[in-house]
Simulated scan of single mutants.
Amino acid sequence: MSNTLILVHGFMDTGRRMTWMSKQLRTLGWKVLTPSLLPSNGTQTIEKLAERLSQFIQENTLESDRIDLIAFNMGGLISRYYLQRLGGLAKTDRFITIATPHNGTLAAYFLPFPGIKQMRPNSRFLIDLNGNLEQMQELVFVSYYSPYDLIIIPAKSSVLPTVIASKVFALIHPWMIFDKKLLKRIVYVLES
């Protein structure tokens, strides 16, 4: 449990959204940090939010510290940009995403904001990130998704080749980060 856990919230949230999960993980002995990457309403690009994540990690961890990232929804794409484009791979051992639209979501067509457009299927942003997935093999990368998710459409958008993908049977998108069975599975990944 020597790695610091960084819990990255999603669309329209702050670090407070990750409070329940962070309390559970702290109880188990981990040091947990929950940045608020704002604005999280899609008016900012994912690249800009990833720069804020990178700055937060630099300011709150030592250069020698190892981290694990646990990210929900859009936070998974913010974290991927940090890992793949901002040097985060050098510091990270495990990357766990929960309901992240790695291949986009049709729900992103409802709003015209720059960060939301980046989450549309086949957006330039996603094509760029997904075109260089082999570098993600440097760490443990697990993606959890629910077949009942009505925000990540289709739900299989959370699945990437060469990434461990696992179903969670949460009925509503936001409930995934409060799922006790999912938490046990995340702990298992963190301890392995």
Rank of each mutant, 00 (worst) to 15 (best):
L182T: 00
I78V: 15
S36F: 01
G76P: 11
N60G: 03
N73S: 15
L139I: 15
S40G: 14
L38Y: 06
T4G: 04
L106W: 10
Q55D: 14
N3M: 12
M21P: 07
M12H: 02
Q55W: 09
A170N: 12
L150I: 09
I127E: 13
F178I: 11
Q55K: 15
T43Q: 04
T100K: 08
T97W: 01
K23Y: 11
H9A: 11
Q44D: 10
L83F: 04
M21D: 04
R52F: 11
R185G: 13
P121C: 09
A170F: 11
L133T: 07
P154W: 05
P154M: 03
S2D: 15
H173K: 09
F125L: 12
L28F: 01
G15Y: 04
L106A: 05
Q55R: 11
W20N: 01
F141K: 09
L49F: 02
V163L: 06
V163E: 03
N3V: 00
I186H: 07
V142I: 07
F110R: 09
R124P: 10
R66T: 07
L106F: 09
L5G: 11
K181N: 14
G42P: 06
L139H: 01
E47Q: 14
R17F: 15
Y144V: 05
P35M: 03
Y109W: 14
N60Y: 02
K31N: 11
H102N: 13
K184E: 15
F56V: 04
T14M: 02
R52Y: 14
A71R: 02
L160D: 05
I70E: 06
G104Q: 09
V189N: 09
S2M: 13
E59W: 03
I164R: 12
P121R: 06
V32A: 12
L133N: 10
R16E: 14
G15Q: 03
N132E: 14
S64L: 08
E191N: 14
P147Q: 02
L7R: 00
I98K: 03
E59G: 00
G42M: 12
S123Q: 06
M176P: 02
A99S: 15
K117F: 00
L111T: 02
V168M: 12
L160M: 04
I67S: 01
A108V: 05
L69P: 08
R66N: 12
P121Q: 04
N3E: 15
V189S: 01
P39Y: 03
R80M: 12
I67T: 01
E63P: 13
P161Y: 01
M74A: 04
N3F: 01
M18A: 06
L139V: 15
A71M: 04
G29D: 14
A50M: 00
